[in-house]
């Protein structure tokens, strides 16, 4: 139940309100703000484009004579989860600003953690779906045969990857409170993840400093985990990688929430909340 400013609520009522904000508000916001849900946009951008990214790098790999197709299918499919995760999280701010509702949202007495965590859950689910479709279709097109038994493990790796990348998206959303060109920002972060996360060049083949940067970014450990699972490793063998990926996701989420709180205050002081 929503609270009026200044009203007090019992612990149970406020918990219920937080749950409503997380689950109901999250889904409504996702449908309203992620305007790529139109099938004419969603299918080409979210379902077909990642397959072509896989094909591009698989063929570059063939041309350069390095690594096999499976390496690129898994790397690029998991990495493409970053597109929905980064863009949708940035839209939680930019979309509200565009429709001039950002001020209203931020002036509500709602719990900010519930507000933004709620908005991130559908994003994680969508990121997972996009990556899994890319993995399946990209694999079929290139003839990369992944046995049925490895799919649950890969699916778990992709869930963790999407969640940690959404954490980074939350941090980016805080920047979107001050930076108006969110599409530019999301594209640049996507590019950084493409180069540094071992997507197309294994970490041990990257220069040491780049591999070092990659290890503190989302996706890197999940991509490595997914490749190992595809190679026959059990979940126990990649648990450490997934734990590191999850820890990075939590760290980025906490950093994002703190940054949102700080930048929100700054935006109020500088009256920049609704600058288009």
């Amino acid at each position: 139940m929503p609270m009026r400013p200044g009203a007090s609520a019992s612990g149970g009522a406020s918990l219920l309100a937080a749950f409503r904000v997380v689950f109901v508000g999250g889904v409504i916001s996702f449908r309203a703000l992620f305007n790529w849900l139109n099938p004419y946009i969603y299918v080409p951008t979210m379902l077909i484009a990642p397959v072509f990214q896989i094909l591009l790098f698989a063929y570059v790999g063939r041309s350069a004579g390095v690594a096999d197709d499976g390496f690129y299918v898994i790397g690029n499919a998991v990495q493409y989860a970053s597109i929905p995760c980064l863009f949708a999280m940035a839209n939680t701010i930019a979309g509200e600003r565009f429709t001039q509702t950002l001020g209203i949202v931020l002036s509500t007495p709602v719990n900010r953690v519930a507000l933004f965590v709620g908005r991130s859950l559908p994003v994680v689910a969508n990121g997972w779906f996009v990556a899994m479709v890319a993995l399946f279709v990209g694999g079929r097109v290139l003839g990369v045969d992944l046995p049925l038994r490895v799919w649950p493990g890969i699916a778990l790796c992709v869930v963790v990857a999407s969640a940690s990348c959404t954490g980074l998206g939350l941090l980016q959303a805080s920047i979107a409170l001050r930076v108006r060109s969110t599409a530019v920002l999301s594209n640049i972060v996507f590019g950084v993840l493409l180069v540094f996360c071992g997507t197309n060049v294994a970490l041990d083949a990257l220069p040491a400093w780049m591999a070092g940067v990659g290890r503190v970014l989302p996706l890197t450990h999940a991509i490595e985990g997914a490749r190992r699972v595809a190679g026959g490793a059990g979940l126990g063998e990649v648990a450490g990688l997934l734990a590191r990926e999850a820890a990075l996701g939590v760290a980025f989420t906490v950093a994002g929430l703190l940054a949102l709180r700080y930048v929100e205050g700054q935006s109020r002081r500088h009256a920049t909340l609704e600058l288009q």
Binding site: A64, L194, A205
Partner: peptide
């Protein structure tokens, strides 16, 4: 900036080939 990320990836991949 954007194509530079893809160019960098391609350079790193072709760099591995040693050709």
């Amino acid at each position: 900036i954007y194509p530079l990320f893809f160019a960098t990836t391609a350079f790193l991949m072709f760099g591995q080939s040693g050709n």
